[in-house]
Amino acid sequence: MDIKRRQFLKIAGLSTIAGLGAPAAFNLLLKGESSPVSFASSGSSPEASQEAAPTGVRLGMVIDQNVFDAYRGLAQKCITACHTVHNVPKFDNPKDEIKWIFEVPYEKAFTAKSHYHKNEQLHDSSFPVLCNHCDNPPCVRACPTKATFKRKDGIVAMDYHRCIGCRFCMAACPYGMRSFNWRDPRPFIDKTTYNKEFPTRMRGVVEKCNFCVERLAKGLQPACVEACGNSGAMVFGDMNDPHSEIRKKLAENFTIQRKPSLGTTPSVFYII
């Protein structure tokens, strides 16, 4: 009797362990979901990480600050366009704040740059900042559920269905571009302008700029780029396509990225 019970317990224990572990392990092996991002990026050499990936699509953006400086209010137009299209709530309390794209002065956008008697243009410039859609995103490395992940085209996306709200990605992002839904966002979305085609978020998940994947799928430009019209303030496209406009812009201008020394290789470039 006793031996039987012991054997039964042994088998039961082992099969429980197998039952719990096997599906997870299989998922990992079969789907290989994490491979495009995490493993590929962690293996790249320091030199390679400074260069754009040579093959495939890599979406990016060039922001021409000269245009933004010339047209005051343009950045605000971009922000409104983005926040309306994505049903981003507006909170009165800064503690609850959610923002996908916003304006900051030079020192905040480019923290490591040092200047002595800063030139006048920089003095009152206001830089639009958004998710950098890094080629080597620390947030994706940190996420314990792959709720944030890098797509093949370089977009760092969020799966709000899966996010557990641990906010590890917020700690990992060196640019401060992620927001958390500290409370139910719905009451704080403008009912007159919300976008019926795009969902809201729920409380307890992290959100950020998605490079307008939903608009790209329809052949549209990102909302902020569209808001800039023909001004050329923002150029969006595949940086690996030698004939793209963004590639031309990158070739013709001296551009800088935010905090390049961290090796995240941002896909958003600034012309100053």
């Binding site: 719905r186 009912k191 019926k196 969902p199 809201t200 978020r201 729920m202």
Partner: peptide
């Protein structure tokens, strides 16, 4: 419905 919604019903 926490995220996806038909506005007239849930707003």
């Amino acid at each position: 419905w926490d995220c996806h919604f038909l506005p007239e019903e849930t707003f």
